[in-house]
Amino acid sequence: MLIRIVEILFPLFAITALGYFVGRRVKPDLSHANKLNMDVFVPALVFAALANKAFDVSAYLPLILATTLMVVGSGLVAWAVARVAGIEPKTLVPPIMFNNCGNLGLPLAVLAFGEAALAPMVVLFMVSNLIHFSFGAWLFDHRVNVFPVWKVPSVMATFLGIAVSLTQFEVWPPLLTAIRMLGEISIPLMLFGLGVRLAGSRIDSIGFGLFGAVLRPVVGMALAWAIMLVIELPPREQALLLVFGALPPAVLNYMFAERYGQEPDKVASMVLIGNVAAVLFLSIALAMVLD
């Protein structure tokens, strides 16, 4: 079991570590590459996963509900913890609500459970993204217009892919192959970009960062277990939900905190320490779900 877990996690953290090393030594500007990834490659990955006759969106409704409950429930728990601990809720709540389901979650699902796990993981990813770009932005600024969330390329690709699946429209196979090939660029680029971004982060609040880094997967896995008691899911989706719960805070939380001036140094500490601690928590989650 230990060897299998190492074999699953090693490629993820090896590519991330390489990105971190290059980020420290070379300090490359990946802003254009990251924009291309979010605007072209990730949408291609999402569309290719959803736009096939085997994808039935109605079959994923329980998973959509479970994911929504997990994200919202994590936020409520974080808000309660923040009030009790005297922490500014806007600093703690987003990193606990929104995990690294893109950079780590998508490749981890494929490595651990095979290509068949990509579509349900994309469902988890898109539910989290929709809430992050709408409610997550509103949380920082109640005056923000959440309508542009529908213009996010990965969101547009989601609805287009679902529409193709529902209508049983057959995309020309060579075109679908080209889209799938573009999507395959996104996963290693996300991991490498994650490492480069972490290389530019600072740890100014070690205690606070460690607190958030532990709270995120503990709350996530506990909620996943509780939700699975009331919502019946297939075994693979149960495993993905538990792994989803164990993921660390998303790097996007730091970008939001920096944009809105919400203690970005503390959030950066949670993100950096959380992604390092993910080696432990993802190992625990995989040990719980692998046969």
Rank of each mutant, 00 (worst) to 15 (best):
V146T: 12
P11I: 06
W150V: 14
S154E: 14
L282A: 09
E258G: 08
R143C: 11
T177K: 15
V214Q: 07
M38G: 11
S283M: 09
V122H: 06
L252W: 04
L104C: 04
M270A: 13
A85P: 00
R4M: 09
F13N: 07
Y20S: 02
A48C: 09
M126K: 01
L282S: 03
A82H: 03
D56Q: 07
V40H: 03
S31Y: 05
G200Q: 08
P249I: 14
E263T: 02
M255G: 00
I206M: 15
L223P: 03
E7G: 08
P107G: 09
W150Y: 10
G86D: 00
F147Y: 07
N99F: 12
R202K: 12
A116L: 04
R180M: 07
F55G: 06
N145K: 13
G105P: 01
F13S: 01
P173R: 13
P248G: 10
G200E: 11
S154A: 10
S154Q: 11
M1K: 00
D265T: 10
T16H: 01
A80M: 12
W172R: 11
D56N: 10
L242I: 15
V155G: 06
T68G: 09
A51V: 06
A51I: 06
P11N: 07
M228H: 01
K90V: 11
I185L: 15
V164D: 05
L242M: 14
I179G: 10
H32C: 05
A239R: 02
G207D: 15
H132G: 00
V144Y: 08
M121E: 00
I231Y: 04
Y260T: 03
M228K: 09
A109Y: 07
V230S: 04
S58Q: 04
A49N: 03
R25Q: 05
E7H: 06
P174E: 05
V279G: 04
M1Q: 02
L106F: 08
S205H: 13
T158H: 00
L36F: 15
V42W: 13
L272Y: 15
L12S: 03
A213F: 05
K266W: 00
A14W: 01
L104P: 02
V42A: 14
R180W: 07
